[in-house]
């Protein structure tokens, strides 16, 4: 499964970058994320509960951030495993400034799922991926607004 897309963030590039790499903000934005803790500088451990088709359950995953070119580009490598199966995904994020308060974010991803979730959820995976991503950016813009207020 793969896909790409682009979204406009309501913040300048520096701000957007900062919030994108803030574990607390990310935790709030990822659907079903129960835990997101840094293990070292560019690696996190996460626990995500999510249901796809009839397959609901918890994934324990590691998220690695690689290829960092602050504040324009980075790559996310996600490896998750749990009762419903396994996920291996890689996403590439590129930020392009539009103006002081707007940034364009372009992303591409490739993901492979295994186990039960692949067996019974295959038909919906693309839809689910889009849903999760849309949900992420909706919440992310809220996080950006929140961090603006807190300044």
């Amino acid at each position: 499964m793969n896909g790409k897309g682009s979204v406009t963030l309501n913040a300048g590039i520096e701000k957007a970058w900062e919030v994108l790499l803030d574990p607390e903000a990310l935790k709030n934005c990822i659907m079903g994320c129960k835990k997101l803790e840094p293990v070292n500088e560019n690696k996190y451990e996460a626990e995500v509960s999510i249901g796809i088709a009839a397959v609901k359950g918890k994934y324990e995953s590691t998220i690695e951030i690689a290829d960092v070119q602050k504040p324009n580009h980075y790559k996310l490598v996600v490896k998750g495993e749990g009762g419903p199966g396994s996920v291996e995904a890689a996403g590439v994020v590129d930020l392009v400034p539009i103006d002081d308060n707007k940034t364009e974010l372009n992303y591409t991803y490739e993901a492979e799922v295994g186990g039960k979730v692949a067996m019974v959820g295959q038909r919906m995976l693309n839809g689910v991926a889009k849903l999760i991503i849309q949900d992420f950016f909706k919440k992310f813009n809220k996080e950006l607004a929140k961090s603006e207020q807190s300044i």
């Binding site: 088709a53 009839a54 492979e112 799922v113 295994g114 039960k116 692949a118 067996m119 019974v120 295959q122 038909r123």
Partner: peptide
């Protein structure tokens, strides 16, 4: 092609 099984229910 990677050996992942894709038809695990009567939906597929």
């Amino acid at each position: 092609e990677k050996g992942q099984f894709l038809t695990g229910s009567f939906m597929d």
